[in-house]
Design a protein around this nucleic acid. Structure first.
Lengths: 209, 209
DNA sequence: TGTAAAAACTTACGCCGCTAGTTTAAGCAC
DNA sequence: GTGCTTAAACTAGCGGCGTAAGTTTTTACA
């Protein structure tokens, strides 16, 4: 086939298909040839629209980050803004777990990532936190959010009970896998509460750097 | 070459070389053929000692985790134990950043990972925390430690200042890259302080579940 | 001493990301 | 309308990947 009368591909269609494929089968399944097949096209045709595979994956990550609600910083106290943003971010990552490893390696230099950093950092600065502390708090929230989304803590324990003979406290660890979501959710909520409450205490005591 | 009089490879030598290669050039550089070359051997020979590449990488991860000091839970208050363990874990990951993505996806079902889980969970249980809370606290610490080791928050911002025109609060963000280590360290320390102090407060108030 | 296992080898399969060059259609200048 | 440039698909192929299969030689043990 030569150039078709109507273009078969667009950047949007490619990113959509890539996102769907990654969500459904993970990042390893998203090869150029496979993705192209999914789009009814031959592999190298994708290079007419993206220079590298990394660019496609980046665009998928960008689309995910763009779903996070950063409007919550407007009209809310910094505490409430931070809490609502973190919950939104957490929910978005929970909905796209296979994309998390991509996001975890950097805030991204694309618009949505920068807009998010601006919103978080700006809210903290305007609340009166020092620049250094605002940076730390932003980084810290990211650790909690991506950390909890990345490796399900519970899932690491296999269902083989005899494995835990040498570890008396872990003798019921294999049951964790069944409650995976609840455990991860509980740990995230606990972390969010602890961090925001103790930051709030410091703030109220006037310690803002 | 057929079977040599003296075996060229051992599992230890392979894991050592793999760890060195991953530390030096990252996980992508550690292909079977490249690793074999590094050991003066042909690629498939490695399969006489490990069934898959994943097993080799797992063994490297195991060796890294084994460096974490879990003896600190003995003879220390749970708070101090948690703090010292977290610092040791953090230091080990900081020394092997290229291994972190492997660790981040699960606590590992290998002995060192299990022993670590046992030590952390056991210390919390023996201090009187409920099973559910002990699990949450352990997961939470993991989020902080691996999260801070994974993506340097600071490094994500590129050195191109004009990129930040639209984001007034980020106009100095590109300077972060230079202080990367300090920023990540500061955020980690802040998180550790906040989490342990507020857990300690709850504990002292009798809230242990 | 004969045999089985171990540990290296070579060859090869089917993937991968990506490059190069080809073909045809679309869009625009004259 | 004709002709040129660009766009968007194609096919062919490169070097690298993880790994399977089968070969050769050495070692260890019955």
């Amino acid at each position: 086939m030569a150039r078709p009368r109507q273009a078969l591909l667009t950047r949007e269609r490619i990113v959509e298909a890539a996102a769907a494929l990654i969500d459904a089968e993970g990042i390893d399944a998203c090869s150029m040839r496979r993705l192209a097949t999914e789009l009814g096209v031959q592999g190298p045709s994708l290079y007419n629209h993206f220079a590298t595979k990394a660019e496609i994956v980046d665009a998928v990550a960008e689309a995910v980050v763009a779903q996070v609600d950063i409007s919550v910083f407007r009209g809310n106290d910094w505490r409430e803004g931070l809490r609502l943003w973190a919950k939104s971010y957490h929910a978005v990552l929970a909905a796209h777990p296979n994309v998390v490893p991509v996001l975890a390696t950097g805030p991204g230099r694309r618009p949505a990532g920068l807009a998010m950093a601006e919103a978080v950092y700006g809210a903290l600065i305007e609340a009166g936190w020092s620049r250094a502390r605002a940076t730390h708090i932003g980084a810290l929230m990211r650790y909690l959010i991506t950390g909890s989304a990345l490796g399900s803590f519970a899932l690491g324990f296999e269902a083989d009970p005899e494995l835990y003979d040498r570890f008396p406290h872990l003798h019921r660890a294999h049951e964790l896998a069944a409650h995976r979501a609840a455990v991860d959710e509980g740990a995230f909520e606990l972390g969010l509460d602890l961090l925001i409450n103790s930051l709030s205490d410091r703030y109220d005591q006037g310690v803002r750097r």
